[in-house]
Write a protein that binds this DNA or RNA. Structure first.
Lengths: 228, 228
DNA sequence: TTTAAAATATGATATTTGTCAGCTTTTCGA
DNA sequence: TCGAAAAGCTGACAAATATCATATTTTAAA
């Protein structure tokens, strides 16, 4: 079992505010897991009872609508914590998390980390800031979903993916999403997503080969996102 | 200047976790305001630097989309805190708050209440829980906005308003919203909202006289919200 | 490797929703 | 109380999007 104190990933999230002693305790109780592409980290209706610290890989966090369609709320990647809300809620999860590629994660049980929440105020404040940030981007997403056209939302999503997963030397977006995933991010039918992607390709604004997508004309995409 | 300790409203939000001493300090620095219907509590781009505690009245919290249309994110009423996020963020507000009726509010400066966040962990945890709850409902709203039709969203919104503002003896929704406000809650054109409301009225599912709206057939509305 | 299943792609069409125009009713300030 | 402005309403039409059908390509399992 590796030690949290030596884990680089910790530097990228709220865990960096824990003391050596606190980290030792967390190290002792956490469980490391390898999660294969397509596997489920947790499901809707499940008691989460802890947080995941993502060491490597990306997962999609989604929720089923009453219409029976899946909406992807966010993509969570290396360095992030996942499931923070379970720490302050007794309710079951309303979200589902599925690995988009092979992942390395650590699971820290709620009962252990809750002690730090109660004693280490810097840590609590950091979690609070995280949630405030999530809340702000959730608000922005609500506005986009409610007010923008599918075309705008696709442009927006591509720009966002490009910024967030820009870890490919050739400029390709560093995460492989199916057309269905893309449709579920922007909240539309798969066919519509495919059509709009093809349009963007025809207009030389993006380029793709299967799931490898690259933005060619960022300015044009930004204009589309803004409604032009 | 009234004392927070004797204020009933405090019992309904995180301020209830403050000690007598803390409340005395807050009492001393807060400012009470009367805000008339239609007046702005704060605008997008403004430094908020504190929280509002709503003693009476309701306000709409909204954000402009890049398309130039206004999206109402939430309605905040008596007992609630408003602007909690400003406590842990240095950024300007991305939201705007406008009174829907005459309001009584207290404004507590950030620099005072931040002390309590740093020292009173029960208070911090309570704020954290609030944010977690907000985040959960924001997630649900994202899904609804992305996946549901305008008709479904209207039904949903009416049910939600009925539950949240059910303080009228005749069963009318206890807050007066213009047709434009309703459209801005569900993310559609005013004309579309008007048309769908008329439809529901024709089908005897709701009843309204101007801004007085009453639900007649809750079951039917629930079915519509679910897509039938 | 072969082959069935899944994913991607495209066309035709139906449905939903937005926009514009014109009208009526309500509200509110002079 | 009057009259203008705002809000509410309705119809006609255009644009956006979903749905269904079907073909093609890719993926993954036997």
């Amino acid at each position: 079992m590796s030690k949290c104190e030596q884990c680089i990933v910790r530097q990228f999230n709220s865990l960096k505010h824990l003391s050596k002693e606190e980290l030792l305790r967390i190290s002792a109780c956490k469980t490391s897991k390898t999660i294969k592409k397509g596997e489920v980290l947790f499901s809707e209706g499940e008691h989460l009872n802890g947080v995941f610290c993502i060491k490597d890989g990306v997962c999609k966090v989604s929720k089923m609508s009453e219409n029976g369609r899946n909406q992807i709320i966010s993509l969570v990647q290396k360095g992030n914590l996942l499931g923070e809300r379970s720490l302050v809620s007794e309710e079951v999860s309303n979200l589902k998390a599925v690995a988009l590629n092979d992942m390395e994660v650590c699971f820290i049980p709620k009962e252990e980390i809750i002690r730090d929440l109660e004693k280490n105020n810097t840590f609590t404040m950091s979690i609070l800031k995280d949630m405030a940030t999530s809340l702000k981007s959730a608000d922005n997403l609500i506005v986009d979903m409610a007010q923008k056209t599918v075309k705008q939302r696709l442009a927006e999503a591509l720009l966002h993916l490009h910024t967030k997963f820009n870890n490919d030397s050739e400029g390709y977006i560093g995460v492989h999403l199916s057309r269905e995933d893309i449709a579920n991010i922007i909240g539309t039918a798969t066919e519509s997503a495919i059509r709009l992607l093809s349009d963007l390709k025809k207009k030389k604004i993006i380029e793709f080969h299967g799931k490898e997508i690259k933005i060619l004309d960022e300015i044009a995409l930004e204009k589309i996102a803004q409604g032009f």
